[in-house]
Design a protein around this nucleic acid. Structure first.
Lengths: 248, 248
DNA sequence: CGCTGCCTTGATCTTCTTCAAAACGTGTGG
DNA sequence: CCACACGTTTTGAAGAAGATCAAGGCAGCG
């Protein structure tokens, strides 16, 4: 039977500084924008990156900070967000190992447009704007790969704009859960568990609603047997049902 | 005194097919991603583009259409939008001459994620995905320039997400008007006129509100002497006042 | 004129927020 | 192992913002 249980999320045990050289190479090699480069290029590029451990909750940078670095997630999950004047937070995305964030003078940015926070304990790799510029000049394919990724993110952002403009909290929450599940869901006895500690507050910040409204909607979803959830975790039990509510 | 007057917008008189070779070269040359290329490269690239005239209201493509072309606005204004299941529309942006839109297999897209419509009569230039791919390979600087532009659009989109999640219709409308004014505003006896026929419906679609709410808010702004407006036009009279409402 | 499409305004209803309080889970220290 | 404390979640009731429904007004155009 379904129903609230203890948290089923397997927490990654990580010592903040555990970014071994081996892991770094592995991460860099499989980055979408480096994956076509030969091994020796990767090692050369690796030397330009600096590792930085970060505990859950740590802010990596704040919106408005002068931004001259690019970051790559090596371990853990990073949350991109913006603060509103009201103190409210808006979550713009959650990044997994292998994804990049930050900003670059190359991209016409001189300060970070949003805040980055470690959502779970992990480790990020940093490169300076100047060094990255060198890579771009040396390997033209890299900028094309980045273009692809940024385009995908733009499409994603527009999808969210569409939802925020035209859908109810109910649909938005359903869509958000489905998106999270497809990104970091793990099948676990008939359910699709979202492998990420996720509070109601987080979901509220992702959907542009309040904690209370999210809690109510989640309770309703639970009654409808669409999801299963507890303290800081969610699992999807009826994917099609949620899709229906999300508006396909 | 201020107050409603006849439409002060100067309509561009354009014969749909008036895209002369001279104009095409001029447009292409000043495109942000071609501007560093030598003249002979531009003429060579020009040969790959096809011109297409479009009357106001004409749909250039619909969301979901298989997308294998990139477009560049030569004359007029193009509106990017999405339809909601409810029939509601969401405007994602308005593009001026020199801006590009559409999608490309290169960018990981195989169907258009949104609809493009001529907002005023104008002319667009088209290039096939394959041909554009050739340009990218031949001139690596182009993909870097495109990366810059797409990054800027992503930032813009995230800004809108932030607003939709955390601000009232009042702030959103103020911010939208300011953005439009900075993009296509013209100073005209003490006012900043937005050079674009703009209905209440358009503004509603841009801010995620209804026509009625926009109309009410505009009336309020007019009473507060922040703007001046009439049938399908708007001018800003108190920029700082609007900025205040937009939340700086 | 009188039509057609855009804009405005009012009244009512729905959705979501806000405020408030209670219940539950988890980790901690006895 | 238990009990307590804290942060998270839940639920209720009241209120506000905006949507919806419904009329009427005004500009531009044949």
């Amino acid at each position: 039977m379904a129903g609230r249980r203890k948290t089923p999320i397997e927490s990654e045990i990580i010592e903040p500084q555990s970014c071994t050289v081996h892991l770094r190479l592995h991460i860099l090699k499989q980055l979408p924008f480096f994956k076509d480069l030969p091994d020796e290029a990767i090692s050369q590029i690796n030397a330009l990156f600096r590792a930085e451990g970060c505990e859950a909750g740590k802010f990596i940078y704040f919106a408005g900070d002068p931004g001259v670095s690019l970051y790559v997630v090596a371990q853990g999950k990073i949350k991109l967000l913006r603060h509103a004047v009201t103190g409210q937070e808006v979550v713009l995305g959650i990044l997994l190992p292998g994804e990049f964030f930050g900003s670059l003078p190359v991209l016409g940015e001189d300060t970070h447009p949003d805040t980055a926070q470690a959502h779970t304990t992990g480790c990020v790799l940093t490169i300076t704007g100047d060094d990255f510029q060198k890579i771009l000049q040396q390997y033209p394919g890299v900028s094309l790969a980045m273009l692809e990724i940024v385009s995908a993110r733009l499409r994603e952002a527009r999808e969210i704009i569409h939802q925020l403009s035209a859908s109810s909290v109910e649909s938005r929450l359903a869509a958000t859960l489905l998106k999270l599940a497809s990104k970091l869901g793990k099948t676990q006895n008939d359910e699709l568990l979202i492998q990420l500690p996720l509070s109601r507050q987080d979901l509220a910040d992702m959907t542009g609603a309040t904690v209370e409204t999210i809690s109510r909607t989640m309770s309703q979803f639970r009654k409808q047997k669409l999801i299963d959830s507890g303290r800081r975790w969610v699992a999807i039990t009826d994917r099609d049902g949620l899709k229906e509510i999300a508006g396909l």
